[in-house]
Nucleic acid binder design. Structure first.
Lengths: 196, 196
DNA sequence: AGGTAATGTTAATCTAGTTTAACATTATTT
DNA sequence: AAATAATGTTAAACTAGATTAACATTACCT
């Protein structure tokens, strides 16, 4: 089961480090395959995030509910993306974010202990995670800059261009939240674009 | 020279991984100590960022000049912080950001090649960089959330509380830029706080 | 197929933060 | 000590985006 499902994960990993067959087998023997229904939570704000998930199929939203009860989308994840509340995962303290499935979602999960164990057995994986984090950090920084230097319309156009497949699958009001604007304003932007 | 200056770096590293004396010596023999005057650039937008810098003393700003000519502060760095344009550094492509010294600044620098070499000789360093990046990524994500869910005043108060020493050393108009507001509006916020 | 919940639109009013511009204060240089 | 540059303040007019509320459309459930 995992062997078959693990294909996309191994393919992903091979972009960063080269594992031999034995190492691949060890890895797949330790991780967990898990299926979620639409609407189910992978992580809940307040719980400790026990594992980080590599998405095989489906789509998730990561969001934060502020003290006024407002939901703010932090990120989306689709096939071949990782998702978790990293802050909670690395410190094993309660999560700030929720990760919820927008579609039926299949994931391969690394529990905290398994990840530690794997890093010990296959030290090459340190390099994998380092490189993944480098990229994640860079794109997070770039997003901060975009949020400051672009208007809402420019941010929307950028999102559309960068993640065309997400634009189709995700409701507009969630995209608005990701962009940091209201759904009404996104609607206005779209109609404005339409008659350009 | 490096031995003496390297103390704070080794201390910093020891918070993440344990190096033996030999490893510490190798590390210090490979890195470079460098002094900058106030106003000098460590990285310039458009150049490839050749090294990443650990600050021993002083203070830097990382900023981005957008296509309207506006400066946007991405981050500040003081003693015991790292700075560089990581995106440029890891891919060895032209930098998006400038890193400029706000004070006379001393730094220990890891060139790209030296970092690669060190990672090979002291694999434990993979773990160090992974852990540093985990923290950097988490705090970057948190900043995105703050920018969405807090008002300008709340963001300013948070900054003051988190980085009291920076608040003293850095001109208000740069802090305003970091917070994503104009200097005039920060001035207004401050006078409003003053008469509360 | 019909009913309900989820998603999307439009428009009026409002507000947090911007812009412009003039002036005040503090450092830095000579 | 004066002159200049850098930093900080105030206030009026303006705008990007929020809020509210009513309505339209689409998807989902039985």
């Amino acid at each position: 089961m995992i062997e078959e499902k693990g294909k996309s994960l191994l393919e992903y990993i091979s972009r960063y480090v080269t594992l031999n067959e034995e190492e691949e087998a060890i890895l797949l023997s330790k991780v967990n395959y898990r299926k979620y229904l639409k609407g189910q939570y992978i992580v809940q704000q307040g719980d400790v995030c026990k594992s980080s998930s590599f998405i095989i199929s489906g789509c998730t939203k990561t969001f934060y509910v502020d003290n006024k009860g407002q939901e703010h989308i932090v990120m989306f994840a689709i096939e071949d993306w990782w998702t978790s509340d990293i802050g909670s995962f690395i410190t094993q303290t309660p999560a700030d974010y929720n990760v919820q499935c927008l579609e039926p979602t299949e994931a391969i999960q690394f529990s905290y202990n398994v990840q530690e164990e794997l890093l010990e057995k296959i030290p090459k994986l340190e390099r994998l995670f380092r490189k993944m984090l480098e990229r994640a950090f860079v794109s997070s920084q770039k997003r901060i800059v975009r949020n400051f230097s672009l208007t809402a319309k420019e941010r929307y156009l950028y999102f559309k261009e960068q993640y065309p497949s997400m634009e189709q699958r995700i409701p507009q009001y969630l995209i608005a939240s990701y962009l940091g604007i209201t759904k009404e304003f996104l609607s206005k932007i779209k109609s404005q674009i339409a008659l350009e």
